[in-house]
């Protein structure tokens, strides 16, 4: 990452709030007036217990959900002012998602799952190239059911990066994987971040993962309680849990 790229933050949030069950007694403040600024090109780890607001933040930054209050910007464009249609466009052009349960379409092969994205993206990577990047050249014609969890998650990463996204948002990408396979997935994320400079946000329960991040944001009860910058990053391969 270079200092020059960091002149404009990729994401910025001011007083970002999300309330579920508004007005009722069961009101939950999933996100409570979060202020945030994330520079371009970093690998950011979001840490925190269940229900601390990490996923909610990721959903709003990824254009999957609307905020109840406050504002958020992607490279100077206000996300919180966008219509559903504009959010769809935003996701289509700029955001890559990786989910805990991979969310591959079971009736499509690895290549076809990636093509789901390349079919609609403007300047996509060829599906084969995206799969090669995550080390799955040999598995392109396999269906999800024929692959291991780690392989499936790497297909999901290939699918996320195939559109050459501006940001890569990963929600517990190793949550369903054992340590050894999880490492290969993290290595793939690291590789993408290093090679394309794609800003990558990784949500995790797993404190060990923070060692590979440029920046670590810790959540508690819908608030950001700590932001720390790693001076010395550890390669993904050396992380285990």
């Amino acid at each position: 990452m270079t200092e020059a790229a960091a002149t404009q933050p990729v994401f910025r949030a001011e007083g970002l709030t999300k309330v579920y069950g508004e007005g009722s007694t069961a009101e939950v403040r999933a996100l409570d007036a979060v202020d945030l600024s994330l520079p371009e090109g970093e690998l950011v780890v979001l840490l925190g217990p269940s229900g601390s607001g990490k996923s909610t933040l990721l959903n709003i930054l990824g254009g999957l959900d609307h905020a109840s209050g406050g504002r958020a910007w992607f490279r100077g464009t206000e996300l919180t002012a966008m219509t559903d249609r504009q959010l769809t466009r935003y996701r289509r052009d700029h955001v890559g998602f990786v989910f805990q349960f991979y969310n591959l379409v079971p009736s499509l092969t690895a290549r076809e799952n990636v093509e789901l994205v390349t079919d609609v993206a403007t300047h996509p990577l060829p599906a084969e190239e995206a799969l090669a990047l995550v080390g799955l050249s040999a598995r392109t014609d396999h269906f999800p059911a024929q692959m291991s969890g780690g392989e499936q998650q790497r297909v999901a990463i290939a699918r996320a990066i195939a559109k050459r996204p501006g940001v890569l948002l990963c929600d517990e990408p190793t949550g369903a994987l054992d340590s050894r396979t999880g490492t290969t997935v993290l290595a793939a994320l690291d590789e993408v971040n290093a090679r394309f400079g794609t800003t990558t946000l990784v949500i995790t329960h797993n404190a060990g993962i923070r060692r590979m991040a440029h920046r670590v944001i810790r959540f508690q009860d819908g608030r950001v309680v700590e932001v720390s910058v790693n001076d010395t990053r550890v390669p993904a391969a050396e992380i285990s849990w």
């Binding site: 999957l64 466009r89 996701r91 289509r92 052009d93 955001v95 989910f99 969310n103 609609v120 699918r159």
Partner: peptide
């Protein structure tokens, strides 16, 4: 949900 996340 995935398709929507992908921008469909």
């Amino acid at each position: 949900g995935l398709l929507k996340a992908l921008g469909y």
